[in-house]
Structures are given as C-alpha cells and as structure tokens.
C-alpha cells in the first residue's frame, strides 16, 4: 500500500484483495442458502420426515441452517488465514 506498514507491494495487495472480494461474494451467496433458499420449499419439506419422525422444514430451520452458518465462518477463516500467511511470507 505504499505506506510500508506491512511491507506488501501495491501489486501483490491488489491481487490479494481481488481474491478476497471473490471469496467474500461466494460466502455471501452461500449464506443465502441457510438464510433464505432453504426455507422457501416449506410446503414440501413439511411433509418429509427424517430421523425417525422429525419434519424436514422444522429440522432445517431449527438445526441445519445454523450448523451450515458455523461451517461457513470456519471455512472463510481457514482460507483467509492461509492467504494472509502467503502474502506475508510466513
């Protein structure tokens, strides 16, 4: 960034930030699955029973969606952590 604070050149930073923006957009799109898309077919999923009698629509909102969200955060953290190490040469 030219301020010398992290010793990263302008060009390398641009590439890093470009990759990061793509990852951010992908993550947000994936986030719409538990936050939105998963719950739309409630008319169908309420008739599907899983795990010996739990209705799927209920289990989706009361369990799967949240676990999905946790997984997204950790995946993001792991990928970003790897890129941070690469760019800083550690």
């Amino acid at each position: 960034m030219g301020n010398g604070e992290s010793g990263v050149s302008e060009e390398v930073f641009r590439e890093y930030w470009g990759k990061m923006k793509t990852l951010t957009i992908v993550m947000l799109l994936l986030w719409t699955i538990p936050a939105f898309w998963m719950h739309l077919p409630v008319g169908t999923t309420q008739n599907i029973r899983i795990l010996g009698g739990i209705p799927l629509h209920w289990f989706s909102a009361g369990f799967i969606a949240v676990v999905f969200g946790i997984a997204l955060i950790f995946i993001y953290a792991i990928i970003m952590d790897k890129w941070d190490r690469e760019i800083l040469g550690r």
Binding site: T24, M27, L28, W31, P34, A35, H39, W58, A61, G62, A65, V66, G69, L72, I73, Y76, A77
Partner: peptide, 16 residues
C-alpha cells in the same frame, strides 16, 4: 423459528 436462525446467521455476515 425466525428467532433461531435470525439471531444466529447474522454472525456469518459479521465474520465475512
């Protein structure tokens, strides 16, 4: 159940 997903999935936005 909006409380369950609504009060949790915001943290994904916060993280990213």
């Amino acid at each position: 159940l909006p409380y369950i997903i609504g009060w949790t999935l915001g943290y994904v936005i916060a993280a990213v």
